[in-house]
Nucleic acid binder design. Structure first.
Length: 212
DNA sequence: GACCAGGCACATC
DNA sequence: GATGTGCATGGT
């Protein structure tokens, strides 16, 4: 499996090149984006982040100080804006109370401890936690998302109904733990998913993973 | 108008 | 543990 996963990575990298993820100007912006992008088109998230920046509200204190209605209005374009407003605040209260809203303090903790803590925040599930760990905190964890499952189940590498943990184990066991590679691999899978591995009408004939 | 997008919590069985 | 449902905007 190791060879297979590594070879898929090489082919994706050759086909698409570096993806330069996560697209954000700061680690804090990565975290906000990770929560806002839940089950949502990235373009809609960018608009919400831009609205927060435009009002000079893209920092922990400002977001916490906004009323739910005001915050909801700013992130409206990202969809599920009421629930996401409360999820953002749930994270920010944890971030303030546990780490004094300081990314460096968080960064100093271990992957294992942080993952457990993040999963206790209401609104942060496995994918969001792992996205924060990998892309904001440089921890070597492989992010599994809908694209990853769809692509690898279509190629017979994971079961169609496998759990998040089962899929993650396959990657974590089959690859060397590298933050840089995990970062690029997941970004490349999203690129492949967006361009070639649609839910319906899969353009699999064009998929760079097909053929030799 | 239908379908989809870089999920998650909660209720119910 | 598995399955179903609500949450919502904006692009194709």
């Amino acid at each position: 499996m190791k060879c297979r996963l590594e070879s898929i990575f090489s082919r994706l990298y050759s086909a698409f090149g570096p993806q330069k993820w996560w697209p954000a100007e700061s680690k804090f912006e990565v975290i906000v984006g990770a929560i806002l992008t839940q089950n949502t088109n990235w373009g809609n998230v960018e608009k919400a982040v831009a609205a927060l920046k435009n009002k000079k509200c893209l920092n922990p204190g400002k977001i916490l100080a906004l009323s739910p209605v005001r915050l909801g209005a700013l992130i409206k374009s990202a969809g599920y804006y009421n629930i996401k407003a409360s999820r953002l605040k749930n994270f920010l209260r944890f971030f303030r109370d546990r780490y004094s809203s300081d990314i460096k303090r968080m960064h100093a903790r271990s992957l294992h401890v942080l993952r457990k803590e993040l999963l206790q925040v209401n609104g942060i599930g496995e994918e969001t936690a792992d996205s924060i760990l990998l892309y904001a905190l440089d921890k070597p964890v492989f992010v599994i998302d809908a694209y990853t499952k769809r692509i690898f189940s279509r190629h017979g590498i994971v079961g169609k109904d496998c759990t998040y943990g089962q899929a993650q184990d396959i990657f974590m066991r089959g690859l060397k733990k590298s933050v840089r590679m995990f970062n690029e691999y997941h970004a490349l899978l999203v690129k492949l998913g967006k361009d070639y591995c649609h839910k319906q009408n899969p353009k699999c004939a064009l998929c760079p993973l097909n053929g030799r």
